[in-house]
Design a protein around this nucleic acid. Structure first.
Lengths: 254, 254
DNA sequence: CCATCTTTGTGCACGCGTTCACAAAGACAT
DNA sequence: ATGTCTTTGTGAACGCGTGCACAAAGATGG
């Protein structure tokens, strides 16, 4: 499992903080929109607003990449798009495979956001023989028997798991054995992988449960408030939970 | 009134840390599996392993809920399932609406994980008149003209947005105006909402970009390593990326 | 060339979250 | 009862991430 005790402090020396890395795609999206509108430069304030973050945070994030801004002016949009793309590794082509072509897998295959940014669906894989050959999103589904060969022939290093929970761990192991070192898991299971392999999870069920928690809390406070309400302090505001950032993903079964 | 000074600092007094809340669903899932296998009790060590976290972290998390364990024995599975469910607000029924019944919306509607835990799909809504009346996952799709009425009639407080990016903000505003206070956003956009409304996002594109970043770094380190020990700074190694935890979701366009 | 105004880049402080490490609590055997 | 062994619950230290606030950098105008 990750956490190989050993290594250092975590993200060290030349490394960019994880929290920053997670925000770079957000900045990139906002910058791309500006680019399409032919906006030449943008200030940290404007860009921060577009990305939904604090401007100080944005400036600090960019400072980890280098000094790409011009004081009194702002940042050059095109240049920044390029720098962030390069930092994220989007200047190269990343072939990905999607395993498990059910409702979700098909939705992912049809998702246009792949090609838009360096990602290319190299293959769709499913364990159901009946699916083999059937085209989904214009790509013929291949049987999982050929998983290893597909991974190797296409030099795939990123895999997306959209299978039922029960099959996820086994698929994960085959992917890793075949050479995949980054996995995006939509199955509602905790995957265990060897050191050096990255796993990120997306789980609808977990996200909903977190929302339910806050929803319940809001209902409780509301009840307590209507009870006599502290005029002044009533200014809850704070903890209006921001949700958006600072948390973790969830999983999504099939 | 209750809790005198009440909140403020953010997650205060009676509050459970956000990071802990985000892990409760994970524990609950592991506990449910144990429960189905009729396992009576479980130690923090075992449960932590099943949930993929550190045992000390798990114990601290549970300590925020109260002292539900027995020293020398562990935790009672059934009791813990109940306590966590209650804390997350899953003992009540949460009607949710899904807006945007494209590939993704349909996949979400078909997702069995809803009913399993207090969530019920109250309605499917789409802007395409051609979709109206067509059943998806056994539920007839309704036109977005009736959005407000649907929300109110069903007492919906949680909404899922699975529309294209362009429509997301407008849908979000209508949902909020109609009474929704928690939103799960799958559209690749930053939603702005008034205070008191929770938004969580799930974005495939962002997740992939984060993986690409780590993938690129791994490739770089590998190259540097095989190079024969770079004198100075070559000592990269560190950051064996943890990926799994501690980050943020991503968005997912349609 | 100097003054002014704008915006970046960052030092610093603070708070949350993680982890260690251990004392206290209880089960269980004798 | 008493002792031993297991496992919880938590005090304390530490590190990461956030946000403030400001000095430095550069643009712009006179």
């Amino acid at each position: 499992m990750a956490t190989g005790r050993t290594h250092r402090p975590a993200t060290r020396s030349r490394g960019i903080p994880e929290a920053t890395v997670a925000r770079l795609p957000l900045y990139l999206r906002a910058l791309t929109a500006l680019s399409e509108r032919s906006v030449p430069t943008v200030s940290s304030e404007e860009l921060a607003a577009a990305a939904g973050v604090n401007s100080a945070k944005l400036r600090k994030d960019f400072s980890y990449l280098g000094s790409y801004g011009t004081r009194g002016v702002g940042y050059d949009v095109e240049y920044l798009v390029y720098q962030i793309s390069r930092e994220l590794g989007l200047t190269q082509d990343w072939p990905v495979v999607i395993v498990g072509i059910g409702n979700l897998g098909a939705a992912l295959a049809n998702y246009g956001g792949f090609a838009s940014r360096g990602f290319r669906v190299a293959a769709l894989i499913d364990a159901d023989p009946a699916m083999a050959g059937k085209p989904v999103a214009g790509i013929p589904v291949q049987h999982s028997d050929d998983l290893e060969k597909i991974i190797q022939d296409n030099g795939v290093s990123i895999g997306v798991i959209a299978t039922p929970a029960g099959a996820a761990q086994a698929v994960c192991e085959r992917l890793v054995a075949a050479g995949v070192t980054s996995i995006l898991n939509f199955a509602p299971t905790v995957l265990s992988v060897p050191d050096g392999v990255d796993v990120r999870k997306v789980d609808l069920s977990i996200e909903l449960q977190i929302l339910a928690f806050h929803e319940q809390r809001k209902a409780g406070e509301e009840a307590a408030a209507s009870d006599g309400g502290a005029p002044t302090a009533a200014a809850r505001s704070d903890s209006a939970d921001q949700g958006p950032d600072g948390d973790m993903p969830a999983v999504m079964p099939a």
